[in-house]
Computed example of a mutant assay.
Amino acid sequence: MRYLIIRLTSLGSVAMSVPLISSLSRRYTDDEFVYVARKDLADLFHGMPNVRYVRFTPSHNSSSLTRSGELCAMVSGLHAIRRFDAVVDLQGDTTTFLTRCWCLTHGVKSYCISRTDALHRWAYIQRSGKASQPPAMADSYAAALRSAGFTIDDDFTALDINTQAAEFINERFGNGVGERWIGIAPFAKSATNTLPFRTTKGIIQYFSEQPNTRVFLFGAGVVESEMLNQWSSIYDNVVSVAGMLSLGSELELMRRLSGMICMDSANQHLASLVALKVITIWGGTTPENGFLAWKQDKEMCLEPRRN
Rank of each mutant, 00 (worst) to 15 (best):
S110C: 12
K130H: 04
Y53D: 08
S147W: 01
W102T: 14
V36R: 11
L98I: 08
P19M: 14
C72V: 07
Y28W: 04
Q126Y: 00
G47S: 11
S17H: 06
I81M: 12
V108F: 02
A123N: 07
R115H: 01
L20Y: 10
Y124E: 06
M48Q: 13
V34S: 05
N61I: 04
V75S: 09
D30T: 12
D43Q: 11
R127Q: 02
P19L: 14
A142R: 15
P134W: 04
D43T: 02
A80K: 14
T29V: 06
D30F: 03
F45I: 12
S17N: 07
R38V: 02
P58H: 09
D30A: 11
Q133P: 07
I113D: 02
A142N: 13
L78C: 13
S63V: 05
A143P: 03
M137W: 00
P19C: 13
D40I: 07
L119E: 01
Q133S: 12
P58M: 11
R55D: 03
S64L: 15
L145A: 03
P58F: 05
I81Y: 08
S128E: 08
T105P: 11
L145I: 00
K130D: 04
Q91L: 14
F33R: 12
Y141L: 13
R115C: 01
D40L: 12
H106N: 10
V18Q: 06
V51M: 09
Y35M: 08
S13G: 04
S128F: 03
R27M: 14
R67M: 13
S140H: 09
H46S: 06
R26I: 13
Y28F: 07
G69W: 01
Y111M: 03
K130N: 03
M16E: 12
S22H: 15
R27A: 15
T116V: 11
R115I: 02
T95D: 08
M16T: 13
L104T: 11
L98A: 11
G129N: 02
Q126T: 01
S17L: 08
T57F: 05
C72W: 02
V87P: 00
D117P: 00
F45R: 11
V36M: 13
G69D: 05
T29W: 02
D85I: 10
Y53P: 05
S62V: 11
C72M: 11
H60N: 08
L11I: 02
S13A: 04
S76Q: 08
S63G: 07
S76C: 09
A80N: 11
L44K: 08
A142D: 13
D43W: 03
V36A: 14
F33V: 12
G149A: 06
I113W: 00
V18T: 06
A123F: 04
H79P: 02
F33A: 12
S68H: 03
G77W: 08
T105V: 15
V36K: 10
R127K: 06
K109P: 03
M16W: 04
H60L: 07
T96C: 01
H60S: 09
P19S: 13
H79D: 10
K109V: 06
P49K: 14
L78S: 13
A144V: 10
T94I: 03
A15V: 06
V18E: 07
Y28D: 09
T94H: 00
V34N: 03
N61V: 03
R100A: 09
S76N: 10
C72R: 14
L98V: 10
S147D: 10
G77E: 15
S63K: 06
D30W: 02
R55I: 04
A42E: 05
H46K: 05
R127F: 00
